[in-house]
Simulated assay, not measured.
Amino acid sequence: MLRIGLLGAGRIAGVHATAISGNPGSTLAAVSDHFPENAKKLAAQYGSVARSTEDILSDRSIDAVLIATSTDTHSDLIEAATAVGKAVLCEKPVDLSLERARSCREAVSKTGMPVMIGFNRRFDPNFGALKAALDANEIGKAELLSITSFDPAPPPVAYIKVSGGLFRDMMIHDFDMANFIMGEPPVSIMAVGSSVVDREIGEAGDVDTAAVTMTYADGRIAVIKNSRRAVYGYDQRLELLGSEGLLQAQNMLENSVVKSTTSGVTGAKPTYFFLERYMTSYAAEWGAFVDAFAGGGTLPVTLDDGIAALAMAEAATRSVQSGQPVRVEDV
Rank of each mutant, 00 (worst) to 15 (best):
D76S: 15
A268G: 09
L275S: 10
R168A: 10
A68D: 03
A178N: 07
L6A: 02
E99Q: 08
K269E: 03
A43Q: 07
E91D: 13
P185G: 05
S97D: 09
G164M: 05
G25W: 02
V84I: 07
Y159T: 10
F289A: 08
A30R: 03
P36D: 09
G296Q: 03
N251Q: 13
T302I: 09
G140C: 04
E200L: 14
S48R: 09
S194A: 11
L310E: 00
M312L: 14
L241A: 10
A284R: 15
Q236F: 09
G85T: 06
F180N: 13
V197Q: 11
S195E: 06
G296F: 01
S281T: 01
S194P: 02
E254V: 08
V326D: 01
F123R: 11
A249T: 07
D291H: 07
P114G: 12
I307A: 03
V290Y: 03
A283S: 14
V258M: 15
A158K: 08
P155H: 03
K110L: 09
L96S: 06
A158I: 01
R3A: 07
F289Q: 09
A222H: 05
A87S: 15
L275H: 02
V65I: 14
V49A: 10
D151T: 11
R100T: 13
S52N: 13
G219P: 05
F167K: 11
V231A: 14
S188T: 09
P93A: 02
G14C: 03
I221A: 04
G5Q: 06
S281D: 05
Q321I: 10
L310H: 00
A178V: 14
M214D: 03
S188R: 09
W286E: 10
G245F: 04
V115N: 15
V331Q: 12
I62L: 02
T73E: 09
L42H: 00
N38S: 14
S32P: 08
D206S: 10
A311P: 10
V94S: 07
G118C: 08
D33Q: 02
S70A: 14
P154M: 00
